[in-house]
């Protein structure tokens, strides 16, 4: 469980303009949740996730990890980073070893584990992201975009984190690649019970998977709730440069024309079922 208490973060100052990137953010991230963190560029979402593993230190406020303040003296940041795994947007920023397997070993090696444990963890992590032994000796630079991303995620999973934060894991991938990565992450969450925070621009991508959406805007939490609650504010979301999934607009348009359909529909499957209920189909 991660708890943020009144986090503020400002930077700049001096000759440049001071920027208030996070304003009094308080949040709780209980174990086992699958959270979508949404916001447009500059909304503070990237800054926020870097607070969660101590890469950026809050100007004021406190962060508790399992009840312990991460800013307390003697708190091990390295320990925190192995427990709160953060995978950045571009895998190119972290892949550096000559082959996939060695690269995934980097994390556990930094934790000072013995060689056998390191290898075991790397193997397990690669299995978790769906890369079998045939990839072990391949150079990470020769992989496709989606595969690179898997290796990057495995590199963090090998540290056995309790929380996995993914910063736009689907950027630049084609639709199929995007679905594959998200399905893999959902599986991880389901089978391992790992807490997942998925950072994204796209409501459509996350609506299908997450059980909670946090919307960031101007450094503050604008909305926080289950997807259908958040999407009810689709008009406000638009003023924040975001949009609800297209299906929300379809449902709203149908309702506006008097078609009897419920408001809280967030996925194509739900919409299909609801429409068929009204007009009937073969099945």
């Amino acid at each position: 469980m991660i708890e943020l208490k009144n986090i503020n973060y400002t930077y700049g100052g001096g000759t440049t303009q001071q920027i208030h990137a996070l304003k009094d953010v308080s949040l709780q991230i209980p174990d086992g949740q699958f959270i979508g963190l949404i916001g447009h560029t500059g909304s503070g979402k990237s800054t926020l996730i870097q607070h969660l593993n101590g890469l950026v230190k809050a100007t004021s406020g406190d962060i508790l990890y399992n009840g312990q303040s991460i800013y307390a003296e003697g708190f091990s940041m390295k320990g925190l980073r192995s427990k709160v795994g953060l995978v950045f947007q571009y895998p190119e920023h972290q892949l550096f070893e000559t082959d996939v397997f060695t690269d995934v070993c980097f994390g556990p090696k930094n934790l000072g584990l013995d060689a056998e444990e390191i290898r075991a963890r790397a193997r397990e992590a690669l299995d978790l992201v769906g890369l079998d032994e045939s990839y072990d000796k391949v150079s990470p630079f020769e992989l496709s975009g989606g595969q690179k991303r898997r290796v990057a995620i495995a590199g963090v999973l090998a540290m056995k984190p309790d929380v996995l934060i993914l910063d736009e894991p689907t950027a630049g991938l084609d639709p199929k690649g995007r679905d594959e990565i998200l399905d893999q992450v959902a599986k991880l969450h389901r089978e391992r019970g790992i807490t997942v925070v998925l950072v994204s621009h796209s409501m459509e991508d996350v609506a299908k998977y997450v059980d909670r959406i946090i919307v960031m805007n101007h450094g503050q939490v604008a909305f926080d709730g289950v997807p259908k609650e958040v999407f009810r504010h689709y008009q406000e979301l638009e003023t924040m440069g975001l949009a609800a999934p297209q299906v929300t607009y379809i449902v709203q348009a149908l309702r506006a024309k008097g078609f009897p359909i419920g408001e809280d529909i967030t996925t194509v499957e739900e919409a299909k079922a609801a429409i068929l209920q009204v007009v009937g189909g073969k099945r």
Binding site: L86, H93, Q94, N110
Partner: peptide
């Protein structure tokens, strides 16, 4: 800027 991002990505993997 890129160096900064890379450093952070590696620190997230426990690099010191």
């Amino acid at each position: 800027e890129e160096t900064d991002k890379i450093m952070k990505a590696q620190m997230a993997r426990g690099a010191d």
